[in-house]
């Protein structure tokens, strides 16, 4: 299905958010995710099924002021 991940369009096979992170080779307990503008806690990623056109944000800690 077609997804928008961090602003970039891509084609993915994963059915859930958890599976998508694995498919895209993301790892680490410092990642935060959102699906279509709403937070998805790490514990709930396996339950969140993806649909064509979903927008996913994957964030990590960064320097800030």
């Amino acid at each position: 299905m077609k997804l928008i991940v961090n602003g970039e369009a891509l084609e993915a096979r994963a059915a859930t958010l958890d599976a998508l992170l694995k498919e895209l080779d993301y790892e680490g307990n410092w990642l935060a995710t959102a699906l279509n503008g709403d937070v998805v806690p790490a514990a709930n990623r396996a339950e969140f099924r993806l649909a064509d056109g979903d927008r996913i944000e994957i964030l990590s800690p960064m320097q800030g002021g």
Binding site: N6, G7, L24, D25, Y26, E27, G28, W30, L31, A32, E57, I58, L59, S60, P61, M62, Q63, G64, G65
Partner: peptide, 21 residues
């Protein structure tokens, strides 16, 4: 203070800063 930004390297760029902090 710290921030959150899009992770573009599979988690690896955030990991370095996370470890430092």
């Amino acid at each position: 203070t710290v921030s959150l930004r899009r992770e573009m390297a599979g988690g690896r760029s955030g990991q370095q800063f996370w470890s430092l902090v």
